[in-house]
Amino acid sequence: MLHIKCPYCGTRSQNEFAYGGDATIKRPELNKEVSDKEWDTFVYFRKSPRGKHLEFWHHISGCRQWFKVQRDTTTHEIFKTLKPNEDI
């Protein structure tokens, strides 16, 4: 069982959260010409690192806010949680 610290509510059990994937992916800028390659990379391609991973979680059975978690994908150690507009 993961214990995740929601930046708004504090530490809760994993059962209250939903996973949202890699948080380092940036959508191509709006109102700009986007190449097919840039779009494919944004939609499909992921680094999927073994080790530290910055990812989105959703406190779906709690405050319903999205936030970022930095977690080790092998040990599941959680180093830091951040609000979505914060950077590591």
Partner: peptide, 13 residues
């Protein structure tokens, strides 16, 4: 399990 993992062991939920 639902989140990126290289752990080769699972979680109870």
């Amino acid at each position: 399990d639902g989140y990126n993992s290289y752990a080769q062991r699972g979680n109870l939920p």
